[in-house]
Design a protein around this nucleic acid. Structure first.
Lengths: 112, 112
DNA sequence: AGGTATTGCGCAATGA
DNA sequence: CTCATTGCGCAATACC
């Protein structure tokens, strides 16, 4: 809106005299109302979306926390067993972290 | 806004004649402008927040995916070893799922 | 060309 | 009383 028209009552522009002009104004006023309602709805939806995402986020954070703990526990269990008596041979040279990493990367890559 | 004043130029109400009135209007117009700027900023921020949360969400989804895979892999490895030769005795009666569940719940509870 | 949709702006009522 | 917020109408555009 470059020409920042302040409040010229009306002279040239718009319609003609009074008949068509009024109808045009009325129609535009309705359009304005519609537009503003829509705008407010969108704002509301956006705010709702934020709350929704916040919740999803919490759930995911919790999941990560639980999974991380489980994984840690299992790793300990695994390593404890590995450093045990007769299992030395079996677990000798096993890189647990690498195994895990590999297991995660092999989801759908068929290259190599 | 019960009295839906349409567009009466001005008669009673507001100020008095023209001196104080104008100043009052001008000040209000500035306030209106401030208010609207602020409103738009807030809308922008809300939209940015949505995008930000969307990203965080993606990252977390991926983390969950990876951790779940790692965990699955480790469980398989564990169980495979359990159903092995001489380890039957050691793993006999072990409920892996329960162990994992317990390991997750023992974050800070000291009750028995 | 001709309509609707959006947007900046000012006014007035109302909220704080 | 002052400033902030909000419904509303106008006019300029943006959009089709």
């Amino acid at each position: 809106m470059p020409p920042k028209r302040g409040k010229p009552k009306r002279d040239i522009e718009s319609g003609e005299d009074s008949d068509e002009y009024r109808k045009k104004r009325d129609r535009n006023n309705l359009a304005v109302k519609r537009s503003r309602v829509k705008s407010k709805q969108k704002t509301q939806e956006t705010m709702s979306r934020v709350n929704q995402l916040r919740q999803e986020n919490s759930v995911l954070e919790e999941k990560v926390k639980v999974l991380t703990q489980e994984l840690g526990f299992l790793k300990e269990l695994f390593l404890a067993h590995a450093s045990n008596n007769a299992n030395q041979a079996k677990f000798e040279g096993i890189d647990l972290e690498k195994l895990l990493k590999d297991s995660s990367e092999n989801t759908d890559n068929k290259k190599t």
